[in-house]
Computed example of a mutant assay.
Amino acid sequence: LWHGLAASTRKTYSTGQRQFIIHAQLNGLYNPDGSILPASEPAILSWVAHLGGRVQPKTIKAYLSAMRSLHVDGGLPFTSVESPLVQRLVRGIKRYHGERDRKPVQPITLPILTTLLAQLKPGTIPGDTTTYAACCLAYSGLLRSGELTVGKGGKYSASLNLSRRSVQFLPTFADATHVRLTLPASKTDPFRKGVTITVAAAPGQLTCPVAALKALFIETPRPDDAPLFEQLDGQALSYSHFVKSIRNALSLAGLNPEIYAGHSFRRGAASAAAAAGYSDYEIQLLGRWRSDSYKLYIDNDPNRILHLSSLLHVAFTHLAPFEPPALRDFTAMA
């Protein structure tokens, strides 16, 4: 039962669950038998009203999902979250307090990636070969930061994280035109069947992921079960270390490092694909998205929008109402 949810999900849920229990204790919102669970509708309403204006409406909804999970774990009935009163209260909070705009990390587009890589000196400065290869692969493979690194406090496992075995150079190491990367576990692969993605080489380009990985394998040979990316201390590349490394390089390039993070590569590659005219299906395929959520990652080019707007003034207007070709010269039967 415990493993029915990912450890990261349980960690996220624990925040909302803990806040409800504290609120119930402070306000004496106990059941007649003195228990807090199952949560009563008045207790949930009091808690949600307390959260209004303090956290985002979407956070309140996430907290309610956390409470539902807590009841499922305990085999307890929990219908309060589906209550029309609770739903209307959440909607009222959103209408009254509003919802702040998202402030996602900015995309690392190809020009920014090239600028970032120019600050690194692989083969000269220790650790730069790893950072260089990780950046190229993150962009080219549209990788999630959790697929590339080990999370805070996490321990490396070859069955969960990228290892040297995860990379296969094809057709050969010497003449590789692409790599086949196997992700042992990912967000859309909860049962750890493994997901294989193909990443093409970009011969002659600074951003070529295949060349960067080959340089890494040559400079620091490791056993097959060793982490694909390692820090100078020999530990698997952590998220915090990776972000610190790219921000240092961005700072050297004169860019604001605080607006970029590990997910910036995935967002930048998705935006580049959209700007290049890739179809929705192709972008979802590259990024392994199962829904339209990929659209949240795409930044629309202001120049493109300006161009489309200008075309409205020169668009050709049909003198006659448009009708499909199949209906032209159609004679109805009596």
Results as ranks from 00 to 15, higher is better:
109 T>E: 05
109 T>A: 05
111 P>Q: 05
112 I>R: 03
113 L>H: 02
113 L>N: 04
115 T>Q: 12
116 L>Y: 00
119 Q>E: 15
120 L>M: 03
120 L>Q: 00
122 P>K: 09
122 P>N: 11
122 P>M: 11
123 G>C: 14
124 T>M: 08
124 T>P: 02
125 I>G: 02
127 G>P: 03
128 D>V: 10
129 T>A: 11
132 Y>M: 01
132 Y>F: 10
133 A>S: 10
133 A>V: 03
134 A>L: 05
135 C>E: 11
136 C>K: 01
139 Y>T: 09
141 G>N: 10
141 G>L: 10
142 L>V: 10
144 R>N: 03
145 S>I: 15
146 G>R: 07
146 G>H: 09
146 G>V: 09
147 E>L: 12
148 L>N: 00
151 G>R: 12
152 K>C: 00
152 K>S: 07
154 G>H: 15
154 G>D: 15
154 G>R: 15
154 G>F: 14
155 K>Q: 15
156 Y>N: 04
162 L>D: 01
163 S>P: 03
166 S>T: 03
166 S>I: 03
167 V>Q: 00
169 F>C: 00
170 L>F: 12
170 L>E: 15
171 P>N: 13
175 D>N: 14
177 T>M: 10
178 H>D: 04
179 V>C: 05
180 R>Q: 15
180 R>V: 14
182 T>K: 12
183 L>K: 01
183 L>T: 02
184 P>W: 08
186 S>P: 00
186 S>D: 08
187 K>I: 12
187 K>C: 08
190 P>Y: 13
190 P>E: 14
194 G>W: 03
195 V>Y: 06
195 V>L: 14
196 T>G: 07
197 I>D: 01
197 I>T: 06
198 T>M: 06
198 T>Y: 08
198 T>G: 01
199 V>R: 00
199 V>P: 02
200 A>R: 05
201 A>F: 05
202 A>V: 12
202 A>G: 05
205 Q>D: 15
205 Q>S: 14
206 L>W: 08
209 P>C: 07
210 V>Y: 06
211 A>T: 07
212 A>P: 02
213 L>F: 07
213 L>Y: 06
214 K>L: 04
215 A>D: 12
216 L>Q: 04
219 E>F: 09
221 P>N: 05
221 P>V: 02
223 P>N: 09
224 D>I: 06
225 D>M: 08
226 A>H: 13
227 P>I: 06
228 L>N: 02
228 L>T: 01
228 L>C: 02
231 Q>P: 01
234 G>I: 06
235 Q>E: 15
235 Q>P: 00
236 A>F: 04
237 L>R: 01
238 S>V: 14
240 S>P: 03
240 S>Y: 15
242 F>Y: 15
243 V>F: 13
243 V>S: 08
